Lab assay of single mutants.
Amino acid sequence: MQNSHSGVNQLGGVFVNGRPLPDSTRQKIVELAHSGARPCDISRILQVSNGCVSKILGRYYETGSIRPRAIGGSKPRVATPEVVSKIAQYKRECPSIFAWEIRDRLLSEGVCTNDNIPSVSSINRVLRNLASEKQQMGADGMYDKLRMLNGQTGSWGTRPGWYPGTSVPGQPTQDGCQQQEGGGENTNSISSNGEDSDEAQMRLQLKRKLQRNRTSFTQEQIEALEKEFERTHYPDVFARERLAAKIDLPEARIQVWFSNRRAKWRREEKLRNQRRQASNTPSHIPISSSFSTSVYQPIPQPTTPVSSFTSGSMLGRTDTALTNTYSALPPMPSFTMANNLPMQPPVPSQTSSYSCMLPTSPSVNGRSYDTYTPPHMQTHMNSQPMGTSGTTSTGLISPGVSVPVQVPGSEPDMSQYWPRLQ
């Protein structure tokens, strides 16, 4: 039975679970980093996980050691009161100082060594604690504590007292930064006198190289990059290397530039699409467009005044059976039934097929058609009795279509119309 579990990581490298990497692998990681390889490249070359490479390099940059820390136990506290007071002093002298600059000053002034120097995250935590204590304490208590930490007896009751030896409130920041720059020169002199001055200088240079600022491109470089971006948004590694040799930039910087440029292009394309949609959409909808001609068919113009009344309900007709019959029939052209047409008796099958359309009241044959006459024609229609054979009435077949029909004066039988409509 094995005491430890061995495995293979996602890159194909072998590791022992819970145990640190061998010293030979750690040394190779540092050597590759000094030669300029990126952590992701080191991870692929040595088949070590990216997190492990970053952790080893980060500890090497901070402490200069590649040895693993002790497994188990607690780390001794490195942010001692003396170190905290120095950090507060540096922050007062130059409020814009960075944590890694404070760390360098602690090393250069001999406050800490490589073994007990606090990390950048520890210094940031100390600065946050100082800021929170400043908010919790009152103004007087804060000034007393700062005077105690600074070891001075001057008056701290006013704002300019934060910067000793100065009279203009805006000047101390520059003086403090100048003092810090002077301390940086002392850093070089002190570290050069040490035993491991060369190694420390190499480590600091490598650290500065990794902690780079934003790349500033010249106009020629920007023009070359934009020209390549117009050709393709995704250049391959050969195109990037050719462009890197042409404009004297690292291939990694060119790759990052193209990634950022593609993101910018997507944002601009989104804005262009929004403007295009806004320009195509009308600002207001016309009133006429809300009524579609496919839904509402136009009603033909009436030929006679009587045809303006298109349904039985508008003429005072309360018989719903006839109203439904007229509205359900398709529109037909106007025609006239003459008196000489043969009077065919209704076929029983045809009569039964339209039995649902006729009223059940037996008085329908005896009703006159003056009910369908509009009010303004009552006088004219009353002067001509319906009993004469020459009287013409208008029957409504569908809305908007008038059918003048000659009705025999002897017997106005409704059943004569249905064979004609089939």
Rank of each mutant, 00 (worst) to 15 (best):
V120P: 07
C40D: 02
G110E: 11
N129L: 06
P118T: 05
L149A: 08
L146S: 10
Y61V: 06
N150S: 08
V53G: 01
S108C: 09
L146M: 07
G36C: 06
R38E: 00
L32Q: 05
R92N: 15
S24F: 15
D140T: 08
N17Y: 00
P76V: 09
I42Q: 01
K145N: 11
G141L: 10
S121Q: 04
I66W: 05
E82G: 08
E31I: 06
C112T: 12
C112P: 07
L127T: 12
N9F: 02
G36P: 01
D41L: 07
P68Y: 01
S85P: 05
V53H: 01
E31D: 09
P95V: 11
Y61W: 08
S122A: 02
V30D: 03
T63D: 15
N9Y: 00
Y143P: 08
R67W: 09
S119I: 01
Y90L: 10
T25F: 05
K134H: 08
P68E: 00
G138M: 13
R26A: 02
C52G: 13
G72Y: 02
A70Y: 08
Y90T: 12
C94I: 11
R67Y: 09
E62I: 13
V14P: 14
S122M: 04
A139N: 12
R38M: 05
L21H: 05
A131S: 11
V83Y: 03
H5E: 11
Y90E: 15
S121P: 14
T25N: 05
S49W: 03
I42E: 02
Q27L: 07
G51M: 00
A88R: 07
G141A: 09
I71K: 06
Q10I: 09
R125P: 00
A139R: 09
K86V: 14
A70Q: 10
R19L: 05
V48N: 02
H5C: 10
G110Y: 15
L46A: 05
N124G: 05
S65P: 01
G73C: 00
S132N: 12
E109C: 11
H5W: 12
S24V: 12
Q135I: 11
Y60P: 01
S49T: 06
I97W: 11
I87P: 01
P22M: 07
Q47F: 11
I87L: 15
S65K: 06
V14T: 07
Q135M: 14
A33R: 07
L46G: 02
D144I: 13
V48S: 03
L149P: 07
D104E: 07
P81K: 11
V48R: 03
E31A: 11
S54Y: 14
S121N: 15
E93M: 12
V30C: 07
R69N: 13
G12H: 03
S35Q: 11
R147N: 11
K75V: 08
R44N: 06
A79P: 03
L146Q: 08
S4Y: 11
L46F: 01
I29G: 00
V16H: 07
P68T: 03
T63H: 05
C52N: 02
M148D: 08
R26S: 01
Q27T: 07
Q47P: 03
Y61K: 05
R59A: 04
Q135F: 11
G110Q: 08
I102P: 00
